[in-house]
Simulated assay, not measured.
Amino acid sequence: MCINFRPPDPAMLEAVMGVIIDLNDGGFWEDDTFKDRLAPIVRRGADGQREGLLASYGAVPQKRIPPGVKKFDTMNARSETVGEKRSYARPWQQQQLCLVPMISFDEPCYETGKAEWWRIAMADKAMFAVAGLWREWDGEHGPEASFTQLTINADDHPLMGRFHKPGDEKRTLVIVPQDEWEDWLDCKDPEYARGFLRRYPAELMTSWPSPRTPRAKKPKPETAPAPPQAVNLDFGF
């Protein structure tokens, strides 16, 4: 499923969602969000208003996985099992819901016979928000937040059904329509929340090839210089 996305910049986030994140205290976010990187999310604050904060991408950050436990990814939570899996069950049952703002996300397409990365966005290129869950951890300097994104089946979706390996189940992020943002954040009942987990209309979305910049290869270590040859200092005197 989705392993990276592009969040909006601070000005767009404020203009569209009305939240401001204090970057002096919370750091910053990058143009592309990958596993364990910080990105903005929006949740319901203690005062009842929308609250923006930076959170780590992946419900269980890699640094939180105990030593000796095989590493696993929690960037995407399957809606069918979200209430059962240990990584997501408590946030889901407690309805720790959030919106993950973004301007696009990437998926692999195999229509040419090999994996090619495509970018998915709204047809009008507007910012949108994905349904997510947040959780908090005790940090050295206070609570640290993390998040995951909810996914649903997309086997017969006209657009999202094009992505991922042939034969694999097709999945899509849950895009929450803007007029439902408040209702999603206000959900208190997991069963009621499931009513929001539906596929977004393909005609309101667009996609295009977006090849990734190849990672720079590590330079091969230079061959160690040959040791200096011994110099014969016997001049025959």
Rank of each mutant, 00 (worst) to 15 (best):
D138T: 11
A126P: 11
L53T: 04
A131T: 02
S146F: 10
R78G: 04
E80G: 13
P101F: 01
G132H: 00
K114Y: 15
A131I: 05
E136C: 13
N76R: 06
R119W: 11
G45M: 04
T112E: 10
D106V: 10
S79Y: 03
E111L: 08
A46E: 09
Q94V: 14
G48Y: 05
R44Y: 14
G113M: 04
G45V: 01
A115Q: 15
S104V: 02
E84G: 15
Y110C: 05
Q62D: 04
N76P: 01
D47N: 07
G58P: 01
G83H: 15
A115H: 05
E80L: 09
N76Q: 08
Q94Y: 14
V42M: 02
R78S: 07
E107G: 02
S104G: 05
A126Y: 13
T148K: 04
S146K: 03
T74A: 05
M127D: 03
C109V: 09
E136T: 14
D124R: 07
R90Y: 10
K85G: 09
R44G: 07
F105P: 00
E51Y: 11
R44D: 12
A131K: 01
K71A: 07
C109R: 14
P67W: 12
M122D: 04
T81W: 05
K70V: 02
Q49W: 05
V60H: 06
S56Q: 12
G142I: 10
N76I: 13
S87D: 07
A131N: 07
G142C: 07
D106H: 13
P66N: 02
P61S: 12
H141E: 07
S104D: 02
A89Y: 02
G58V: 04
K85V: 11
Q94P: 13
K85D: 13
D138P: 14
V69E: 11
H141Y: 04
D138A: 14
V82D: 00
F147Y: 08
V100Y: 12
T148W: 10
L53S: 13
W92A: 01
S146D: 11
P101S: 02
F105C: 04
V42C: 01
A115G: 15
G83M: 12
K71V: 10
M122R: 04
M102R: 00
A121M: 11
P67K: 07
